[in-house]
Design a protein around this nucleic acid. Structure first.
Length: 862
RNA sequence: GCCCGCGUGGUGGAAUGGUAGACACAAGAGACUUAAAAUCUCUGGGCUUAGUAGGCCGUGCCGGUUCGAGUCCGGCCGCGGGUACCA
C-alpha cells in the first residue's frame, strides 16, 4: 500500500503536517508542558514506563505514550498541574551486544539511539516536559544511584553472598537466561555451566510481609497484577524438620527439610537433595559416579522454567534416613536435578501420590507410591496422575497420624504442625517464595557498584564525594570477558578507609535498579542528592502509572521495595512507600515473526517490511525465497518483529497515528499489529475538519433542532468523559464517531452547531490535540484548547422521557415496547402481556412469573 | 512445569447478569461525475425462507447456577505474558 500517495490525496484539504507543526510551535511558545510547582492547583503526575533506547520507536511505544498523553491532557483541562516526564532506560545488554556485533561503543550507540528515538517521538506532539529528560546512563543519574546504594549499605539493606550464574566456558562470560538456548550459549554454542560467584543482594525478602500486606491498599491497581505479586511473594506456612541419617558421614547427622504439605508425611517415598547440598558435595569427593551426576546437574541453565521443564533425573546415594514418625521406616536419599539449593533447605521429602513431579520421578526410578488421602467419592489409588486437590477441599484420610478422618488440606496441615511441635520433632515456619534481589552483573554497560576491595580493610564503600564512579570510556569488546576486569588502570584506586592501593569492584548493577527509582528522580532531575524533599513532597506519588503487563511482577515489585528502602534512608516520605497510586497495564502490540535457520544453525530474523505475504506464506522481497512464519509474540528487537509508526505519521500525520492506535482495541488487550484502518482514521479526521469548515461558513437560524443537538452534546460529554476516565479509549472514540455523525446530520442552527463542534474539538483534544486546536480556533474558541476547561455534562439534559424495553418469553426476545421512563411496573407488565408475540406464546394460559426490571427488560416465564 | 491473562461476524472490536454484534475496517449495491478520486446513501452472524414475516442455531469446547449467562462457577482446549541475568 502506498501510504504516502494516499495521504497526500487526503491532505488536499486537511493538511496535517502543516497543522501539527503550527500547534506544536504554539504549545512551545506558551510553554504549556513545563511542570512547575504551584501550590494553588492540585498536582497530577502521569508516568509511562520509560523506553529502552533500542533505536526505533515502535507501535507499542506510540500506544503507551499516547495513552499517557490522553490522561495528561485530560487532567490539564480539568484544572490540574500536570507532571508528564520522559527519560531513557539506557543501560543494558543490547548496547554491549551491538558493540560486539557491529563494533562501536555502547555509549555512542545508546546516545545516538536516544537522539533518533526522541526525533521520532517529537512529531507525535506528546505533552511531555522535556526539560526533565534524563538517561539512566548519564553519570548525573547513576552517580545519585551510587549514593543510594551507599545509603542502603549503611542501613543494612544490601549484603554479599554466593550465588550461581550461567557461565559460558568458551566465551568466558556470564550469560543472561535469554542467552541460553537449549542449555547452550547463544554465541559459542558451548554447554552452559553453573558458576558460583560472590554477589551483592538487596534484602527485599526482609520486606516480604510488608510488600505482601500493602498490596491490599493498592485500590487502583489491576487485580491480576496484585494477584501475580501475591503469588510471587508466596507466603506459606509449613513444617521444618530433619530426617536422621543412618550411618551418615561425619558432620552429616541429619537432613533438614521444609515442606508445605507435612500432612502427607506418611506418603513419603524418598528424600531428595540438591546436587549443591553439602551432603551431595561431600559424597562426590569419594564417588566418581556422584561427581559425574552432580556435574551434569550443574550444567543446567539457572532459569526456573528450564529447570522445571527439563527431564527429571536422580541418583540414589545409597544412604538412608529414618522416618520421623516411625524409626523402623527407612527412606532412600536421592540427589535430584530439580531441587535447588537456593530454595528452602535444599532438600525435600517426596510424596509421589500427591505431587506430579514426585510421581513422575517415583515411576521412573521405581520408588513406592503411597496414597495418604482420597477424594470423598473416589478411592482409586493413584496411578500416573497425582491426586492434588485444593488445600481448601475436604478429603478422606487413609490413616492420619494426627487423628484426622475427613478434613481439608489446610486443616490437616495445621493439625500436623501442631502435632509435630508438641512431639518436639518439627517446627511450624512461615516462609516466602520471594528471594533476595541479586543486583550484581558481570558487565560493562551498567551502573558501577561503588565499593572497593582492599587487602587490609576488605570490602569498603566508596566515599560519597568521589561519586559518580564513572565508567571508563576506553574499553573494547573484541576480547573475551568483562572489559572492566581487563581495563589496565580503571580498577586501581586508593582504599577509602586506609588509603593504600586497592581495587574497584568491577560488577555493575542490574538495570532493574535504574528503573526502580527514576519516577522519584523525575520530580527533581537535576538535584545534587537523589531526591529533593520539597519536590518529592509536592509531586509524589505518580497518580497514574502506565506500562506493559510484562512488568507486572519484577519491575513493579522492585520499585515498591526501592520506595521502602529510600524511605528508610530519608530520600522519600512515608507517604511515598507505595509510589504508584494507580496502575494501568496496557496489552502488548504483537506481530508475527519471520525467521529462517542460518547456515551456522542460528536463527535469522527478518523485519515485516522485508517480507511479502501470499496465501498464508511469507517470502523475502529481496530474493523471493520462503521464510518461516512464527505466530505473534510481543514486538521485540531481538526477533525483528517490530513495525515502526513513521510510515503512518509521514503519510497521515501524528493525529491519525494517535487516533488509530487508540481506536482499534481496548487498551489492556494485546493487539496484533495491522495497518489496515489507518487510512480510515485519516478519513475521519478530514471529515471532522470539513465539518468545522462548513460550520464556520454557514448561517442557519436557531430552530427546534437546537435543543435536540444540545441534549446529544451533553450525552456525548457524559459518555466520553467516562470513557477517558476509565481508560476506555476505544469506546470513547466509538462514541466520538457517533457524535460526529449526529452533528453532521443535525439541522440545528449555526450557533448551536458551532458549540457542538467546539465541544467535539475539546473532547478530541486528548487524542488528536493538533486537529482539536485547529477546529477550536476555526470556530472561535477562546485561546488554546489545551487551556480550556473540560466541558461538563448537565444531568438534566441526560435523561430521556421514553425508554425502549425488550420483552422476553423464557429469556428469549420476542417483542419490544416503548414506555414512559417512570411508568409503574404493573402497567409495564400489562403492556407486555398484551403484545402479540406474548399472547401467542401464552396460548390462553397465564404466565408462571413475570419479571419486570424498570427501564431494562421484561421477562415472561411460561 | 508453575503463576496470571485472553478467546465474540470476513477483520478490529461493543455489551453495570438484562435486546449479542454498538462504532469502525474490508466487501457489495446505489447517488453525484464525461470519467476517476473524494464525498454521500443503503445492505450486511449462520441456516431456513419468495422475505425487511416467522422459526432454529450462534460469543473456543463440555457441564452447572439463574426468570435470564459473552458476562458468574467447575472441567477441558488453544493462544499470549511472567518465571528472578531481556527490558
Amino acid at each position: 500500500m502506498d501510504l504516502k500517495r494516499l495521504g497526500n490525496s487526503l491532505m488536499s484539504r486537511y493538511e496535517a503536517t502543516q497543522i501539527e507543526a503550527k500547534w506544536q510551535a504554539a504549545w512551545d511558545d506558551a510553554n504549556v508542558f513545563e511542570a512547575k510547582r504551584d501550590e494553588a492547583k492540585p498536582k497530577y503526575y502521569v508516568l509511562e514506563m520509560f523506553p529502552y533506547p533500542s533505536g526505533r520507536i515502535h507501535m507499542g511505544h506510540v500506544r503507551n505514550y499516547t495513552m499517557g498523553d490522553v490522561i495528561a491532557r485530560y487532567k490539564m483541562s480539568t484544572g490540574h498541574n500536570v507532571l508528564h516526564p520522559m527519560g531513557w532506560d539506557a543501560f543494558g545488554m543490547p548496547a554491549e551486544n551491538a558493540a560486539m556485533a557491529i563494533g562501536g561503543h555502547p555509549k555512542e550507540w545508546t546516545y545516538s539511539n536516544i537522539a533518533t528515538m526522541k526525533d521520532q517521538m517529537k512529531p507525535l506532539g506528546l505533552s511531555i516536559d522535556w526539560s526533565r529528560e534524563f538517561a539512566t546512563c548519564d553519570p548525573e543519574y547513576y552517580g545519585q544511584q551510587q549514593a543510594l546504594f551507599l545509603d542502603f549499605l549503611e542501613n543494612g539493606l544490601v549484603y554479599r553472598k554466593n550465588a550461581v550464574v550461567n557461565w559460558d566456558p568458551v566465551d568466558m562470560t556470564v550469560l543472561a537466561n535469554e542467552q541460553v538456548e537449549n542449555g547452550r550459549g547463544w554465541r559459542s554454542g558451548a554447554i552452559v555451566e553453573r558458576k558460583e560467584l560472590t554477589q551483592w543482594f538487596f534484602k527485599i525478602s526482609e520486606h516480604a510481609e510488608d510488600l505482601l500486606g500493602a498490596i491490599d491498599g493498592l485500590d487502583d491497581w489491576p487485580a491480576k497484577v496484585k494477584l501475580m505479586q501475591q503469588n510471587w511473594i508466596g507466603k506459606s506456612r509449613g513444617l521444618e524438620f530433619a530426617f536422621d541419617l543412618i550411618d551418615g558421614p561425619a558432620g552429616h547427622e541429619d537432613i533438614a527439610v521444609y515442606t508445605t504439605r507435612p500432612d502427607t508425611l506418611l506418603g513419603a517415598s524418598f528424600v531428595g537433595i540438591s546436587a549443591d547440598h553439602p551432603l551431595a558435595r561431600h559424597l562426590e569427593k569419594s564417588n566418581p559416579e556422584i561427581e559425574a551426576f552432580n556435574k551434569e546437574c550443574r550444567q543446567m541453565s539457572t532459569s526456573e522454567a528450564d529447570m522445571e521443564k527439563a527431564e527429571k533425573k536422580g541418583y540414589d546415594t545409597g544412604l538412608r534416613v529414618r522416618h520421623p514418625l516411625n524409626p523402623d521406616w527407612e527412606l532412600p536419599v536421592w540427589i535430584a536435578n530439580f531441587i535447588l539449593m537456593d530454595y528452602g533447605t535444599g532438600a525435600i521429602f517426596a510424596c509421589p501420590a500427591h505431587d506430579q513431579r514426585d510421581l513422575d520421578f517415583a515411576r521412573k526410578y521405581d520408588l513406592p507410591v503411597t496414597d495418604t488421602f482420597y477424594a470423598l467419592d473416589d478411592e482409586a489409588p493413584v496411578e500416573n496422575i497425582a491426586f492434588v486437590p485444593a488445600k481448601s477441599e475436604k478429603v478422606k484420610w487413609v490413616d492420619h497420624f494426627a487423628g484426622l478422618d475427613v478434613a481439608t488440606g489446610d486443616h490437616a496441615i495445621a493439625a500436623t504442625i501442631e502435632f509435630a511441635e508438641n512431639a518436639g520433632w518439627g517446627k511450624g515456619v512461615t516462609k516466602f517464595r520471594l528471594r533476595d534481589w541479586g543486583l550484581s552483573r558481570q558487565r560493562y554497560w551498567g551502573c558501577p557498584i561503588p565499593v572497593v576491595h582492599c587487602d587490609s580493610c576488605g570490602v569498603v564503600p566508596e566515599k560519597k564525594e568521589n561519586l559518580p564512579i564513572r565508567l571508563p570510556d576506553d574499553v573494547s569488546f573484541d576480547k573475551l570477558g568483562n572489559p572492566l576486569d581487563r581495563h589496565p588502570t580503571w580498577r586501581q584506586c586508593a582504599c577509602p578507609s586506609c588509603g593504600q592501593d586497592a581495587l574497584r569492584e568491577t560488577d555493575t548493577m542490574d538495570t532493574f535498579v535504574d528503573s526502580s527509582w527514576y519516577f522519584a528522580r523525575f520530580t527533581s532531575p537535576r538535584a545534587d542528592t537523589p531526591t529533593n524533599a520539597d519536590d518529592i513532597a509536592y509531586w509524589m506519588n505518580a497518580d497514574q502509572y502506565i506500562g506493559g503487563i510484562e512488568h507486572a511482577i519484577l519491575h513493579l515489585l522492585y520499585s515498591r521495595f526501592f520506595a521502602r528502602a529510600m524511605q528508610i534512608c530519608g530520600h522519600l516520605p512515608q507517604s511515598a512507600v507505595e509510589p504508584f497510586n494507580a496502575l494501568f497495564t496496557q496489552g502488548m502490540v504483537t506481530h508475527a515473526i519471520y525467521k529462517r535457520d542460518g547456515q551456522d544453525g542460528r536463527a535469522v530474523y527478518f523485519y515485516p517490511e522485508q517480507v511479502d505475504l501470499r496465501e498464508g506464506k511469507a517470502f523475502l522481497i529481496e530474493d523471493g525465497s520462503e521464510v518461516d512464519i512464527i505466530p505473534s509474540a510481543k514486538m521485540s528487537k531481538s526477533k525483528n518483529n517490530v513495525v515502526d509508526p513513521l510510515a503512518i505519521i509521514d503519510a497521515f500525520g501524528a493525529d491519525t497515528a494517535r487516533w488509530f492506535v487508540l481506536s482499534d482495541s481496548p487498551p489492556e488487550r494485546d493487539v496484533e499489529w495491522t495497518a489496515s484502518g489507518a487510512e480510515a482514521a485519516a478519513k475521519h479526521l478530514s471529515r471532522v475538519y470539513r465539518l468545522a469548515l462548513e460550520c464556520s461558513g454557514s448561517d442557519i437560524a436557531a430552530n427546534d433542532q437546537d435543543n435536540v443537538l444540545l441534549k446529544e452534546t451533553h450525552k456525548a460529554i457524559h459518555d466520553i468523559t467516562q470513557g477517558i476516565e476509565s481508560f476506555g479509549f476505544n469506546a470513547a472514540i466509538a462514541r466520538l464517531y457517533g457524535f460526529t455523525n449526529t452533528v453532521a446530520k443535525s439541522k440545528a442552527g449555526t450557533e448551536t452547531k458551532a458549540m457542538a463542534m467546539r465541544t467535539l474539538a475539546q473532547m478530541m483534544a486528548p487524542m488528536t490535540p493538533h486537529l482539536a486546536e485547529e477546529v477550536w480556533s476555526m470556530l472561535g474558541g477562546d485561546g488554546l484548547v489545551i487551556n480550556a476547561a473540560w466541558p461538563k455534562a448537565d444531568p438534566a439534559l441526560l435523561v430521556d422521557d421514553e425508554v425502549t424495553m425488550p420483552i422476553q418469553v423464557n429469556g428469549k426476545r420476542r417483542a419490544e415496547i416503548s414506555v414512559a421512563k417512570d411508568m409503574p411496573k404493573e402497567e409495564i407488565e400489562k403492556l407486555a402481556l398484551a403484545q402479540d408475540a406474548v399472547v401467542r406464546a401464552l396460548n390462553g394460559a397465564s404466565p408462571k412469573k413475570v419479571i419486570v426490571v424498570p427501564g431494562r427488560i421484561v421477562n415472561v416465564v411460561i
